[in-house]
Amino acid sequence: MTGALVAHQITVRYDRQRVLDRVDLRIAAGETVGLRGPSGSGKSTLARVLALLRAPDSGHVTLDGQRLPGVRHRLPAAVRTRVAILFQSPRAATDPRLSLADVIAEPLRATGTPRERARARASELADLVGLTPDLLARRPHAVSDGQLQRACLARALVHRPAYLLCDEATAMLDASTQAHLAAVVTDYQRRHGAGVLLVTHDASLMARWATRVVELPAGGRPTD
């Protein structure tokens, strides 16, 4: 089972409440999997498990056939950066002290890329997502949610991840920004063969974008 990010029999509980019960989900390279379900069904939790940010209570994740032994810092940076996640709230997902240019370049700086190369790559990605140079000097409080989510998308793509998880990433955005971000992700996916997980309540976006839709019932197991 190579070329896929796979959740195997994932169970997650918050205190006594079981939000995911032996859930399996496979995102193959190049495909866009839509994940939908009622609020509280564990979609975001599953995305965090797949993003290697939360350890499940049972079950495991495999990345391109390799079973991952842990999450977060228990995994080397080279493994973590193969999966990127785009959160619903760009404001919560950005360090308010950093300028947008630093937000985008930070993953590169964190993994040892020299400052000038990181800046050049950040500038290239900013251009791709439609951020003008004057916006790059601003900090998160001085831009709109849409502009900030563009920066978050640029940050997510900075390491050229093999899998991109979009957790309600367009929920707070206007239609034109939503369309632009979808186009950038689709283009990236086409060029790099990346697998995409699309968590959204937006049925029309799901229908247009996802190649396969998985339903996640509350506390239950997903069905195609």
Partner: peptide, 9 residues
């Protein structure tokens, strides 16, 4: 979380 996912130690 974003910093951890981005490879920060």
């Amino acid at each position: 979380d974003a910093a951890v996912a981005g490879g920060a130690s």
